[in-house]
Design a binder for these strands. Structure first.
Lengths: 340, 340
DNA sequence: CAGTGACATGAACACGTGTACATATGCGGC
DNA sequence: GCCGCATATGTACACGTGTTCATGTCACTG
């Protein structure tokens, strides 16, 4: 009864289906399906009429129903946490844009601190996705298992956790060498390092590379400190470095946020002048680093190349799920500014 | 043939279904469905066996199939653009986290500049969503129509475009009044304003409120300039303000990013001291504003309350699609720091 | 013991779409 | 005029799940 024109005022929740379009256009339902399938066998006359009717009625094929009997999903899960880092904000913005441009749809999965990550991933895994892109800084063992169960994985951040997954990461060791060479070349001798949490592989990698590069010049570290990858973390780390008898003449930071904290502490609580008394360097080349107020020397890795690498890896992985894992390291370069 | 145990190494693309679990557990398929449906009529014995088997096999109900015959979707579309603003980065991070905690899944839709927004929205509309949250600064007419076609809409940013949609926004006029009162109270008389693009309602609103608040003190603006809501925009806007014969003694900025640009320009290209010669204020209270290096006086609106309001509005809208539109304005407050 | 209700279970259907298969139509070549 | 082929259309099924309906089982009550 209500199937007839009784509810010309189409119900709010009611979604227009291919059958509706077929009825109005005077064709069969499959004709509608074919009209929306490129390369299907339909006459131009029918296709035109269907498209026109669909436009009038506001019809769009239901993605849920379509994916149901297709083996390939156009959905990609994007797992991330802690976007409050400026670097990741820009990174994600551009990456998600590029994914969309390439025809992927993105299911956003937020993993915060604590064990809720497993639950979040489990619920997200109810959606069949073609691939999962992991951009979270760290995942515990359970979360890693949960991600793995979702299918192919691409690591967009530090490639620590999954040794046999595709990964795109910045060559932190190389970047650290660039920084140390630069500082030593400018006459600095007492170099200290403030890196991220020791629990994160990327933080450990950078701290170790710092020591290695320094040893290459015959020098020993004036201090190595682990803290959070944040501005308050930088304040904390620098404060601990200053507890020693003689302050370092250069501080190499694990990312820009830490460097900002270092600069803030030096300005607010000490008489040390930058760069006269002490040099400061960052990592990531976030936007504030380039501001004249700050002028932070830092390590940049080209975002465009990084994003393109991730998307290429994604296409390749979807095309051949059994292909061997590929690990791409993006070559960074040094941006020298006022703080060194 | 391959249906048998031949591929004990379970095929990569093959997804485990409820029928698989039923076969292994020795129950009917519906029993599996019921075991995953809270409140369904199943014996504890069967449910326990099903859950255990599902865990072993790594089964999760297919969300696509489930949503297909349910009227309510657990999916929410999140439409955003230009996350490269620090304020929005934090905002989105927390909002998406809260949505997830409340049981929603998020489909991310990126709208960049230009007309591709319509196409992006059209493709996203193939996914039946319970609601669409729009956080993009601006949408053109076509994009607005596309969003409207997707169902209920909640505006998370400036509530310009859709007069009859739910909206949560900061009370920009009230914030601007707080700033002006503060500056005038400190003896400033030549106040100028640098706001965002005149094409954005939020930017216009703030510029107009600036003039109104100033008139309340019997003063006239020393200049009103429109530019981008970015740091370079602030540099540009301040440069234009300095073209006049006498510089202002206070610059009120439409957001923090603009204020950072202003501070950068003043430091790099002028001899004007902040706050002695000129005061600078921002809007949004982003993290760098609180850094000792910067110490920006700015207007803060509590993020927690804002996010809670959006989520509450979402729940309400989904429960009753025909409820009248609700527009919530969050009361801001002033944070006084070094620049004023 | 018959009757009754609560409860567990399986068969059948629905959701909206893509696609393999069968069938009708039109056209050119003999 | 008939056959063979290409193309267009309709029918039937498949995807994986939730849900309604009918049936079966058990315990409790009179």
């Amino acid at each position: 009864m209500s199937e007839d024109g009784t509810d010309g005022q189409r119900g709010r929740g009611r979604r227009i289906t291919a059958a509706d379009v077929a009825r109005v256009a005077g064709v069969s339902r499959v004709a509608v399906s074919r009209s929306f399938t490129p390369g299907a066998s339909v006459s131009d006359a029918v296709r035109d009429r269907v498209i026109a009717t669909a436009r009038t009625l506001g019809y769009r094929p239901n993605a849920f129903a379509r994916q149901l009997n297709r083996d390939r999903s156009e959905l990609v899960a994007f797992v991330a946490g802690f976007i409050d880092n400026y670097y990741y904000a820009v990174f994600f913005d551009r990456l998600l844009n590029e994914l969309q441009t390439r025809g992927w749809r993105t299911l956003y999965v937020h993993v915060g601190a604590g064990g809720d990550a497993v639950e979040a991933l489990a619920q997200a895994s109810e959606y069949p996705v073609a691939c999962t892109i992991v951009a979270a800084g760290s995942l515990d063992v359970d979360a890693i298992a949960a991600v793995r169960a979702m299918g192919p994985v691409i690591l967009a951040g530090p490639a620590s956790a999954l040794p046999d997954a595709d990964a795109v990461s910045s060559d932190g060791g190389r970047g650290m060498a660039l920084v140390v060479d630069h500082l030593v070349g400018r006459g600095r001798r007492r170099l200290a390092c403030i890196s991220g949490p020791a629990s994160l592989a990327s933080a450990r990698e950078r701290a170790e590379a710092f020591g290695t590069a320094l040893a290459g010049h015959g020098l020993a570290p004036a201090g190595i400190v682990h803290t959070d990858f944040t501005e308050p973390g930088g304040v904390d780390g620098m404060r601990r470095l200053l507890e020693g008898p003689v302050p370092p003449d250069a501080v190499v930071c694990g990312n820009d946020a830490i460097a900002f904290g270092v600069l803030n502490l030096l300005r607010a609580e000490t008489a040390l002048a930058v760069p006269r008394d002490i040099a400061v360097t960052g990592f990531d080349d976030t936007a504030p680093a380039a501001w004249p107020l700050i002028g932070l020397t830092t390590v940049a890795s080209p975002l465009d190349r990084r994003i393109a690498a991730i998307c290429d890896l994604l296409d390749r992985r979807v095309a051949d799920p059994s292909a061997p894992a590929q690990r791409i390291r993006i070559e960074p370069h040094l941006v020298v500014r006022a703080t060194s």
